[in-house]
Nucleic acid binder design. Structure first.
Length: 968
RNA sequence: GCGGAGGUAGCCAAGUGGUCAACGGCGGUGGGCUCAAGAUCCACUCUCACAGGAGUUCGCGGGUUCGAAUCCCUCCCUCCGCACCA
């Protein structure tokens, strides 16, 4: 068992992959009564596939193969997703000659290209995003083939194809007709230089430090002829404001904002312009000019304006409202002012003394376990010295905000909002303030970000965004109806679907740029975004072959209505589209044959988006008969305990699988390491273990084939009958596991445990014609059970045992109860072996002989009697024994052994414990030599009676199912 | 905070009312093989017994039951999702 055997397996894998592909054995026709239409996500073609993606496809392939062998006409097609901005972002990185991206893509391309000069050339070509999409789409095909996936390659398309665009336009026509597309304004991340929306991929480091949009409330404090505007995440605290904070040395502006005079920072002014506000600056001044002034809060309080160093003019409006009772920063800043007073006799401070002196924290929110002034309390507890203790302050700020938000209730000072939970009342207070023209929504990025082009990332309001209205009641109701009849495996994920379905609401479905389909309902240039154009494409697989010859212009909404919904009249549609009637008829037939999508398998990460959209769209666009039936899910894959990621450099691309591992090895590992609902941790030492087992199987199977004897006329011995029965039982358990998608259990049963059993059988029956025959016979069944998991090896061995045709297309073995009683016999034997081992281990002496004493016949009779009794007290047993003429002669012994017997029979199911004398005796006699070898001692088998060698007087302890043992 | 999943021997991990001291693997110990190492094979790997026995275990603490890792309750801890990101 060496490298050369693994090399041989690798060569075999290539051989069968080529044959499957050239014989097109996985390209089903739309005929046959049992069909199974399986889909998995089409890969996003921004780079090579790795072993993490492969987990999903691997499960799908194993199931596809299992179903195929169970007589289903299985369709598992594949296409390519290129829609969206990531590919665009990569292109522009390469165009700008960004070293890291170029190096990454050169490494990707090197996986497939030997010629180094080609590598550079190809990467250079990636300045055109289509080249990225096409290059990787083309390379993922051989990647998948290297894994042995039984994909139908004849139905490929990309989401950028004109045919696809027409299909998606039809989908959106339907949604528009149903009134499910709405428009409105929407905040987005936006680059100030590109003048365009930015996604995660466009932001420098955006994949690591994600930037989100925070919704602040701008609160207007009346001041002179206008307002000082502060920005806050906690509008409810407006009732407890004691003062405002400004940065005295920074510049502020007075500006007309939508016709009102606002005092804010200039940075804020320019950001507001992106948020659909009309902003004109009137004058600039230093923050210190505001100090000592007083403004009036929306709830009528007179509020002084004071200086604080923690104020950042880049954040919000650059002016902060101070709530010292509930905001640690504010309390700390207030303390700083008080302590500086008198020490550094700054003019400003002296001027402000009275104001500072007068400030008392105002208690607004009541929370369990805190005083009236939790911010004060926390500052003291965490020993905050000044407003510059940034780390501590932000930590306790988060802590307190969370606590107050979820568990805090408002005090009487909150007037009509008294007594309500902060989390419930927040929105109402915003409404209240807005109604008095005292508040305005201001969006801010959660962190500073730079676009890859160098521009700042800000929040802009898109005034005319289109949304899919998942919140529409009729849509939601349909979706729930679909969900109710959908099988989900593992079913534990159902709750996540339910939750997602509940909170799904309006969702933007178009973007200003990216690859994809143009949105048909706007004069502006909009592209339907990736998660919105990838939800019903499974339908396209069914008919794509018929569309290749068409002019995409012919694929009108009427065409798709006819094919998918059966709407319209054949002749009419034919005339309208110019498409031949037979083509329309064939496509319609193919769609109705394959749809619905019986089974979709994907990763759990898709539940809250793709899968839910998939179900929503199917529910509303297609009739019930076309609704998907089963969704199965798997968790993700990590490597040596950590996530795989580009930045860690620990990704295993599929392209390297054939040289580093082997397809069948990876396939076996991926399902054996973990169940669907837990993470696979790809650890080399586990892989190594699986590799050894696989090679051992390969080695043994080959030698069984070489030495195999097709014919054997004599009666089979107990061990042979047992291994055949055990194999039968294995087929049954494996089949059941597969139907439940428990493929870990499947390989445990069908590979690992079966391998152990077969090895045990080998040691039970030394080389003989019988064994050679049985092993060959067994292989015929076993290989077919293994074929879904390790198809290459199974296919090769199948050929070597001279079976006709592909094992991939062979019938999954049937199973029956032949020799089932031997399974109980084997359990009995294992019990005896266990007992002998126990005793040997206990006495720690060299021994030469083992004596096994089967119980006397009357004990078996007693056993039946006891088994039939309702109660099993000694008294009852003795009473019954007295009635029996034979047992009556053994009363003394019965009294002695009855407790042990009762205990034995307490094991469930009792009927399987006691085989009867004949069977026990046959089992031991048939395996006597094996036992002798196994113990390394002479083994003698006796039946309990007076004429036997029994120096320690052990035989009398013998019970049915539990012979007595003596070693010497 | 809400919703979901989960906490099992040194580690990973199966097991959801009785055949469970608890599958399997890794690691560890001893032994066979070998000049030796690796590979491989066998045994052991909670505690105590040392003739097949007993005791204590499955996050903590309670409860239901003849019987609980498994069912119920309180608590502690970990992970995932909470949207416009594919």
């Amino acid at each position: 068992m060496t490298v050369s055997e693994l090399d041989e397996i690798r060569a075999i894998e290539r051989k069968w992959q080529d044959r499957w592909f050239s014989d097109k054995i996985f390209e089903p026709q739309s005929t046959g009564s049992k069909k199974y239409f399986l889909t998995t996500p089409y890969p996003y073609t921004s780079g090579p596939q790795h072993i993490g993606h492969t987990r999903t496809y691997n499960v799908a392939d194993i199931h596809a193969r299992f179903m195929r062998m169970n007589g289903y006409n299985v369709l598992w097609p594949m296409a390519w997703h290129i829609t969206g901005t990531p590919i665009l972002a990569i292109s522009s990185c390469i165009e700008r000659c960004e070293g890291a991206t170029i190096a990454l893509y050169e490494n990707y391309v090197r996986l497939y290209e030997e010629d180094e000069s080609r590598v550079e050339e190809i990467v250079n070509s990636f300045v055109n995003p289509w080249n990225i999409a096409n290059y990787f789409a083309a390379k993922i095909i051989p990647d998948f083939q290297k894994m042995g996936f039984s994909i139908d390659w004849s139905r490929q398309f990309t989401t950028g194809d004109p045919i696809y665009n027409q299909f998606i336009r039809w989908q959106y026509e339907k949604l528009m007709e149903l009134g499910l597309i709405v428009s409105g304004q929407h905040p987005i991340l936006y680059c100030t230089i590109d003048k365009n929306a930015v996604g995660e991929d466009d932001i420098a480091g955006g994949d690591v430090d994600k930037i989100s949009i925070d919704e602040y409330i701008g609160i207007k404090f009346s001041f002179e002829d206008g307002y000082i505007v502060t920005a806050t995440l906690r509008p409810e605290t407006v009732f407890a404001v004691t003062n405002l904070w400004v940065a005295p040395s920074e510049t502020y502006v007075k500006a007309y904002v939508d016709g009102e005079k606002w005092i804010i920072s200039p940075e804020s002014a320019s950001k507001l312009r992106y948020q659909q506000h009309d902003v004109n600056i009137i004058e600039e001044f230093r923050g210190s000019a505001l100090l000592g002034g007083h403004c009036v809060s929306p709830v009528g309080s007179k509020i002084p304006i004071l200086p604080a160093s923690f104020v950042d003019v880049n954040y919000g409006t650059g002016i902060v409202m101070s709530v010292p009772a509930h905001a640690p920063y504010d309390w700390a800043a207030l303390n700083d002012l008080r302590q500086q007073r008198g020490i550094n006799a700054d003019n400003d401070l002296i001027r402000l003394t009275n104001d500072i002196e007068a400030i008392k924290p105002i208690s607004l929110i009541k929370i369990e376990g805190y005083s009236d002034f939790p911010a004060v309390e926390l500052c003291e507890r965490f020993d905050v010295r000044s407003q510059r203790d940034n780390e501590t302050l932000s930590r306790i700020t988060n802590l307190l905000y969370k606590e107050e938000f979820y568990n805090g209730t408002l005090k009487p000072i909150a007037q009509q909002f008294e007594g309500r939970l902060v989390r419930d009342v927040k929105e109402d207070i915003v409404e209240f303030l807005k109604a008095r023209n005292a508040a305005s929504t201001i969006y801010e990025t959660s962190a500073k970000g730079l676009c890859r082009c160098g521009g700042s990332v800000v929040v802009a309001i898109e005034p005319d965004q289109y949304f899919l209205n998942y919140g529409d009641p009729k849509w939601k109701a349909k979706a729930f109806e679909l969900l109710d009849q959908l099988k989900i495996v593992p079913d534990a994920y159902r709750a996540q679907f339910v939750q997602t379905f509940h909170w799904l609401d309006k969702r933007p479905c178009v973007r200003r740029r990216g690859l994809g389909t143009t949105f048909p309902f706007s004069k502006d240039h909009w592209i339907i975004e990736p998660l919105s154009d990838s939800v019903i494409y499974m339908a396209l697989y069914t008919i794509i072959k018929h569309l290749r010859e068409c002019d995409p212009e012919q694929l009108t909404p009427a065409f798709f209505d006819f094919i998918f919904l059966g709407k319209g009249d054949l002749t009419h549609v034919s005339q309208q589209t110019g498409l031949p009637q037979e083509m329309l008829r064939a496509a319609r037939h193919e769609f109705t044959y394959w749809y619905p999508n019986d089974h979709r398998h994907t990763a759990v990460a898709h539940i809250s988006n793709h899968l839910s959209f998939f179900l929503f769209h199917h529910a509303i666009i297609f009739p019930k008969a076309c609704w998907p039936k089963i969704v199965t899910l798997n968790e993700l894959l990590i490597r040596e305990g950590v996530k795989m990621s580009k930045s860690r450099g620990n990704v295993i691309p599929i392209a390297t699988v054939p040289e580093v591992y082997s397809a069948d090895l990876v396939r076996l590992c991926l399902v054996s390491i973990a169940d669907l609902n837990s993470t696979v941790d790809w650890r080399e030492n586990e892989v190594e273990m699986v590799k050894k087992r696989l090679l051992r199987f390969w080695h043994a199977a080959n030698s069984d084939i070489v030495s195999g004897q097709p014919q054997y006329d004599k009666e089979l011995s107990f061990p042979s009958r047992w291994i055949l029965a055990a194999t039968n039982a294995m087929v049954s358990r494996a089949s059941e596991a597969a139907h439940q998608f428990s493929y870990r259990k499947y390989v445990t049963e069908a590979f690992f445990e079966q391998l152990n059993r077969v090895e045990e059988y080998r040691s039970m029956v030394l080389d003989s014609g019988e064994r050679r025959h049985v092993l060959l016979d067994l292989l015929n069944v076993w290989l077919r059970v293994l074929a879904p998991v390790i198809p290459h090896i199974a296919e090769e061995l199948w050929e070597r045992v001279h079976k006709d045709g592909y094992i991939s297309l062979a019938a999954f073995p049937q199973y029956d109860n032949l020799y089932a009683e031997t399974l109980v016999q084997k359990r009995f034997l294992d019990g005896v072996i266990g007992d002998v081992s126990n005793i040997q281990a206990a006495i720690k002496r060299e021994t030469a002989s083992v004596f096994i004493y089967l119980a006397a016949a009357w004990k078996y009779k007693l056993c039946e009697v006891v088994y039939g009794l309702d109660g099993r007290s000694l008294k009852q047993i003795m009473a019954r024994a007295k009635e029996d003429p034979e047992l009556r002669t053994h009363l003394k012994d019965i009294a002695r052994i009855a407790p042990g017997l009762v205990k034995l029979l307490a094991q469930e199911p009792a009927a399987d414990i006691v085989l009867g004398f004949e069977a026990e005796s046959e089992t031991l006699l048939a395996t006597k030599e094996y036992l002798s070898r196994r113990f390394g001692k002479d083994v003698s088998i006796f039946v309990e009676n007076s004429d036997i060698y029994d120096p320690a007087n052990r035989a009398r302890r013998a019970l049915p199912a539990k012979p007595a043992i003596y070693v010497e």
